[in-house]
Simulated assay, not measured.
Amino acid sequence: MRDIVHNIGVVQAVAPADIAANTNGAGIDLLSFDSVAFVIATGAITGAGAFTVKLQESDTDSAYADVAAAHYQAPIAGNLAASSTAKVGYRGFKRWVRLVLTKGGGTSIFASVIAIKGHAAERPVA
């Protein structure tokens, strides 16, 4: 049977909001999962808001460092576009990972981010 729902974990990384500053997403715990993808949904950009995306990793959910380029899957080049979706994946080895929205200029962007954890060690995933 085709079933994705019971094979993934879904976590809100950045709540939907009008984002006007650099924003660190929630730390995503990869315990019992072998992969994670972040899906970014944007709305309107106000005042020519220019935001980029990067990933950070940690062993403890406290001291984060930027993820090496080799550990990205489908990195997002350039600024996020208005009213669109984008995705980026992590293939590193740390337990915790988070997405960071970095403001490069302008006013703000409406955005939200969902983390989709895959390759669960135990299924079905609640």
Rank of each mutant, 00 (worst) to 15 (best):
S32I: 13
D34Y: 12
D34L: 14
S35E: 12
S35T: 13
V36R: 00
F38C: 00
V39I: 11
V39G: 11
I40M: 03
I40Y: 00
A41P: 08
T42K: 03
T42I: 05
G43C: 08
I45S: 12
A48V: 05
A48D: 12
T52A: 06
L55T: 05
E57A: 06
E57W: 04
S58I: 02
S58L: 04
D59V: 13
D59Y: 09
D61W: 09
S62L: 13
S62A: 14
S62Y: 13
S62V: 11
A63C: 07
A63S: 11
A63P: 08
Y64F: 05
A65E: 12
A65L: 15
A68H: 10
A68R: 06
A69E: 14
A70W: 07
A70G: 12
H71D: 13
Y72E: 03
Y72L: 03
A77M: 08
A77F: 07
N79H: 06
N79L: 06
N79V: 08
N79S: 10
L80P: 00
L80W: 01
A81T: 11
S83M: 14
S83A: 15
S83K: 10
A86H: 09
A86S: 09
K87P: 13
K87C: 15
V88D: 00
V88L: 01
V88R: 00
G89E: 03
R91L: 11
R91E: 13
R95L: 03
R95Q: 11
R95G: 07
R95F: 05
W96Q: 10
W96F: 10
V97C: 04
R98G: 04
V100H: 05
V100F: 00
L101I: 06
L101C: 10
K103N: 07
K103A: 06
G106N: 07
G106E: 08
G106R: 00
T107C: 12
T107Q: 13
T107E: 12
S108G: 13
I109M: 07
F110A: 15
F110L: 14
F110C: 15
A111W: 03
A111C: 13
V113G: 01
I114D: 10
A115F: 00
I116P: 05
I116M: 00
I116A: 04
I116G: 02
I116W: 01
